[in-house]
C-alpha cells in the first residue's frame, strides 16, 4: 500500500520543463507581437460593416439574370479547364509518381522526380498562373496548364507515398516469377494503389474546379474573372449568384465522386 496523502498530477505534454516554458513564453510573445503589428483602421471597418450587410442581403437575393451570359460562359470555361487539367495532370503525374517512389526507382530518377514535385507544390496556383499567363497570353490555356502543373505535384507526391507503403511481399512475389519492370508495376503495384489513386483523382478534380475559380483573377480564364469584375463594380448580387453556383457545383461533384468511389471499392 502506498502512503496516504501522496500527490498526483497529470503529467505535462512536454516532459522537459525548460522546453515547455520556452515554448509557452515564445508563443505568448509571438502572439503579442503579431497582434501589435496589426494595423486596423476601425473607422474603415465600421464603414465596411454596412457594406458587409449589403452583401449578406445580396446573398439572400442573388442575381443570376443580369450577367447570366458571362456566368454561364465562365462556368463552362472553368469546367473545361478542370477536365483538361485533371486528365493531363494525372497522366503526367503517374510516371512522376512512379519515379518518386524510393522502393522501385533508381536514385537519379528519384531525385529528379522529387525535385519536380517540390517545385510544383511550393508555389500557390495563382503565382504559377501569373507566369503562365505571361508566357501563353490571357485565356483558359494558361489556366489549364497551371492547374495541370499543380496536379502533377499533388498527385505525384501522394502516389509516390502510396507506392512506398505497399506490401513489399506481393511485389517480390511478382518479381520472383521473372516479370519485367512494367509487368511488376502492372501486377505487383497497380492493384495495390489503384483504389486510392482513383479516389485521389476525383478529389483532385474537385480541387481543380475550386482553383479554376480563382486563377481567373490574374487572367487565366474561368469564372474568376467574372467574379473579380463583379466585386470591383460592387455588384454583390451577381457575385453572390456566382458564389452560390460554385458552391452548388462543388457539392455536386463531391457527391458524385463519393458515389463513384463507393462503386469502385
Amino acid at each position: 500500500m502506498a502512503a496516504a496523502g501522496r500527490r498526483w498530477r497529470a503529467p505535462p505534454l512536454i516532459a522537459n520543463p525548460w522546453l515547455r516554458w520556452a515554448i509557452a513564453i515564445g508563443a505568448v510573445i509571438y502572439l503579442a507581437l503579431a497582434l501589435m503589428s496589426l494595423e486596423v483602421k476601425w473607422s474603415r471597418v465600421c464603414e465596411g460593416l454596412d457594406r458587409g450587410w449589403t452583401f449578406v442581403v445580396a446573398f439572400a437575393q442573388p442575381n443570376f439574370i443580369s450577367r447570366s451570359e458571362e456566368i454561364v460562359e465562365g462556368i463552362v470555361e472553368s469546367l473545361t479547364m478542370t477536365v483538361v487539367a485533371t486528365v493531363f495532370g494525372i497522366l503526367i503525374s503517374i510516371p512522376i509518381g512512379l519515379g518518386a517512389a524510393r522502393n522501385i526507382a533508381p536514385v537519379p530518377v528519384y531525385l529528379v522526380c522529387r525535385a519536380i514535385i517540390a517545385v510544383s507544390r511550393t508555389f500557390q496556383e495563382v503565382i504559377v498562373a501569373i507566369l503562365f499567363v505571361k508566357m501563353f497570353g490571357f485565356g483558359p490555356l494558361a489556366g489549364a496548364v497551371t492547374l495541370a502543373f499543380a496536379t502533377i505535384g499533388f498527385m505525384g507526391k501522394l502516389l509516390a507515398e502510396d507506392i512506398e507503403d505497399i506490401d513489399p511481399a506481393q511485389a517480390e512475389a511478382i518479381r520472383a516469377t521473372g516479370a519485367s519492370w512494367p509487368q511488376l508495376v502492372n501486377y505487383g503495384i497497380q492493384p495495390q494503389v489503384m483504389p486510392r489513386l482513383l479516389g485521389l483523382s476525383l478529389y483532385r478534380f474537385d480541387i481543380n474546379f475550386r482553383e479554376s475559380a480563382v486563377i481567373g483573377i490574374v487572367g487565366a480564364g474561368g469564372i474568376g474573372a467574372t467574379l473579380n469584375t463583379a466585386f470591383d463594380r460592387y455588384e454583390f448580387d451577381t457575385a453572390a449568384a456566382i458564389l452560390i453556383t460554385i458552391i452548388a457545383i462543388v457539392m455536386a461533384t463531391e457527391y458524385g465522386s463519393s458515389l463513384l468511389r463507393r462503386r469502385l471499392q
Partner: peptide
C-alpha cells in the same frame, strides 16, 4: 536473370498473393 527466374517457382510465407487480383 528474368529468364532464369521463371524456371524457379517461389512460394512465400504469408502467401504474398496480390490481394486485389
Amino acid at each position: 536473370l528474368r529468364r532464369a527466374r521463371r524456371q524457379m517457382g517461389m512460394i512465400f510465407q504469408e502467401y504474398a498473393l496480390v490481394e486485389r487480383l
